[in-house]
């Protein structure tokens, strides 16, 4: 998987879990403030990322991730993608 493919899939995945169009999901939109993502929805997003990309997201990261960009950066790190 390339970095670009990951970015596209992450956007679609997060948008699907949140329940909005990927077109409306801006990379730096704040999950809580702009997208009404609460801590429970953050757990669901994390689970979806783990199952899709076969990675384990450290639990302490869940509350720190505030945007799609941050989530994508973390997924890249866990997959060793540049």
């Amino acid at each position: 998987m390339t970095s670009q493919e990951l970015e596209k899939e992450m956007k679609e995945l997060v948008a699907r879990v949140i329940g909005i169009s990927p077109l409306k999901l801006l990379p730096d939109a704040d999950f809580a403030r702009d997208l009404d993502v609460d801590s429970m929805k953050a757990i669901e997003i994390t689970g979806a990322i783990e199952k899709t990309f076969k990675i384990i997201v450290p639990e302490e990261q869940i509350r720190k991730i505030r945007t799609l960009n941050q989530a994508t950066t973390l997924a890249k790190q866990l997959l060793n993608l540049k």
Partner: peptide
């Protein structure tokens, strides 16, 4: 689906006589 210290997202289902009668994705804090 995903369980952490402060909550969980669970996929569940119920069968009666081997037939699925209900499915659910639920979350709780």
């Amino acid at each position: 689906f995903k369980i952490v210290d402060f909550g969980a997202v669970i996929d569940a289902m119920v069968k009666v006589n081997d037939k699925i009668v209900a499915t659910m994705r639920g979350s709780f804090a």
